[in-house]
Design a protein around this nucleic acid. Structure first.
Lengths: 351, 351
DNA sequence: ACCGAAATTGTGACCGTTCACAAATGGAAT
DNA sequence: ATTCCATTTGTGAACGGTCACAATTTCGGT
């Protein structure tokens, strides 16, 4: 353990090993064409001195910055968002990304930007100039923001759009919302349900639309109607209450509800309870997101599991790989799964 | 909106404004001794070109890095931790820190290190060399790790230890665990409870000890015994189940339990229900942490609210302020509060 | 032993910014 | 006007790396 007083630079290593700076640089970066013998000698010096290249200096001299920038919404992130969808989403996203970055020698930096369009361009532009990241990850609701994607495309920085199903500039990382909704709906149909309602998310998120599509497609495939079975919320609890009430009032024969967020599902659970209906005996319930909360409700909810951590992780890997490559757009799907708990059961009156 | 092709450097601005690099630098950094007229002219050029100084270059030339490094435990963070204490802790910490950093023109970077002591020094040392942060935030269980604090002290990097009550090197940011436990216990005593048990956290976290102390002190002040009323868990659900069972079996006259984590409190809730006891009619329950989960249990739990976001936020501000100052150690307390919900009530048989 | 190409190593310039210091300018006092 | 000092501006040298390219070594084939 060498005692480190001042920062150890590549020069110190070069001197210690009796070689040139360039050689040390080659060893550090695993460059080719270094004789094994010399490489070992230099490596020994590096270890002895505890040398670690300075990220700042590396970036200065034209190499990569080894930074992935994750763009999050400032307002929604902390207050709004956590109230509505549970905090888990942000958490998983961060940790999935950070973990994967660290695995590849990269670092993830979180940048919070305002939703207000004027500022977005400014703020993001400043962040890009200051940090010069090798890649950017866009999270909802910025995943499909034209101004942002245009800015990134112009600067030729590879970027991934999380939770966006639409092809377009950058890499779209979808969690297969259409398919997931289809899966959940199909499962309910399989259990004998015929009147299956959906509480959708707000239209501003395109995933809301995709989930509705998946639900509708599954119903259509089974020859079931969807009229009057759709209500929209804003992912939050109160909106779920409203939607559930409307649905149950309008459709007394309802036997299943799919909610586009855990909070809205919990609200629906509360509403059904108030009306004297038992879940899952009288009504089955499936939620989206599968945050930790739904494991502790009575009963625990069956939920569509959005593989957020894995999605972000894959996004990071894509960006890193795109480092030198051409920036071909793509849509990558990470499949969602259905975690069956106790809020789903065969439809009433079924064998 | 100037169209940005290549990165705008300080040179471009200097040229555009017809001044020297140094002058631009002065304007950017709010340096003294620049004539207002010139300053405006330069500022105009900066705005027009959309210039933002490169963090890397700034760091290179001896200025600060404007980076705060938050050290988290790799294993516990993702898997273990979230299972045991709910994911909220990490989330709040990150966002509290990130938000505050961004407010001051700093950025927060999360570094995950292994718990295994050999690696910690290496990993952290590498991170410090690579990033050269202006400050470091240590989170449990690293807040009191000797190797880490020694390393930071040696490198003279200001650092804050979150959730540590003990004075020592660096700034200790305590959330007043002793006081919080005392507060919760006192409230129960006030409600007429006489047999108040505690499910403590694992000994490896010093906050566990402090919470026990606060509980004990409150009991002592009221002349109540604490013998046989203490069980320890590991913050996780299962351990809470075990502890609650042991406590209830050993003390049939128990009327209140304080749990050192939300998960353990939920477990205790489940156990009391199994035994035919109603909360809060027969038994009052208070948990620690106040993660979103406890709002959705039946009944919603009264909980000690750990002001994590604020604590980290304050820590960041301390570190930034310490930038140039002397590194005097300190213990700063951010008081916890009690959020009363429906799991606490007057003791059975009380007026 | 000799030649040439391939493999290995070294050299200088440069990345974008700030630092210490030198130069120029301004204004008050003489 | 002149002198002098304080204020304002400019200059060259770092900072710690990498890049392009030049110099050197190695080695197979003759």
């Amino acid at each position: 353990m060498a005692r480190v007083r001042k920062t150890v630079t590549i020069r110190d290593v070069a001197e210690d090993a009796g070689v040139s700076l360039q050689t040390v640089s080659r060893v550090v970066n695993g460059g080719p064409n270094v004789r094994p013998q010399l490489r070992d000698k230099v490596q020994a010096a590096i270890d002895r001195l505890g040398y670690v290249p300075s990220l700042a200096a590396q970036r200065m001299s034209g190499s990569r910055s080894y930074i992935i920038l994750a763009i999050n919404d400032r307002e929604r992130t902390l207050a709004d968002w956590r109230e509505r969808r549970g905090t888990d989403w942000v958490d998983q996203m961060l940790l999935g990304g950070i973990l994967t970055c660290s695995k590849h020698g990269y670092r993830m930096m979180v940048e919070l930007v305002d939703t207000h369009s004027d500022h977005v361009e400014r703020e993001l532009g400043a962040a890009l100039s200051a940090l010069q990241p090798d890649g950017v990850i866009l999270t909802p609701p910025h995943s499909e923001n034209r101004l942002i994607t245009a800015l990134l495309a112009e600067r030729k920085i590879p970027f991934a759009r999380i939770g966006s199903n639409a092809p377009g500039p950058g890499i779209a990382m979808t969690m297969g919302d259409e398919g997931a909704a289809h899966l959940a709906t199909s499962r309910l149909i399989e259990l004998g349900h015929r009147r299956i309602a959906m509480i959708a998310g707000p239209a501003q998120y395109s995933l809301s639309g995709w989930r509705v599509s998946g639900w509708r497609r599954a119903l259509a495939e089974a020859g079931l109607p969807h009229e009057g079975l759709l209500e929209a919320g804003d992912f939050g609890y109160e909106s779920g209450t409203r939607a559930a009430r409307a649905l149950l009032t309008r459709n007394p024969d309802l036997t299943a509800i799919i909610a586009s967020s855990d909070q809205m599902a919990l609200a629906a659970l509360e509403v059904t309870r108030d009306r004297g209906l038992a879940v899952p005996r009288d009504l089955s319930l499936i939620s989206f997101d599968n945050t930790p909360i739904v494991r502790f409700s009575q009963p625990p909810l069956t939920a569509v599991d959005q593989p957020i951590a894995e999605t972000v992780s894959r996004a990071v890997e894509q960006l890193i790989a795109r480092g030198e490559e051409r920036d071909d757009d793509a849509v990558i799907e990470v499949a969602a799964g259905l975690v069956e708990r106790s809020s789903t059961a065969p439809a009433p009156g079924t064998a």
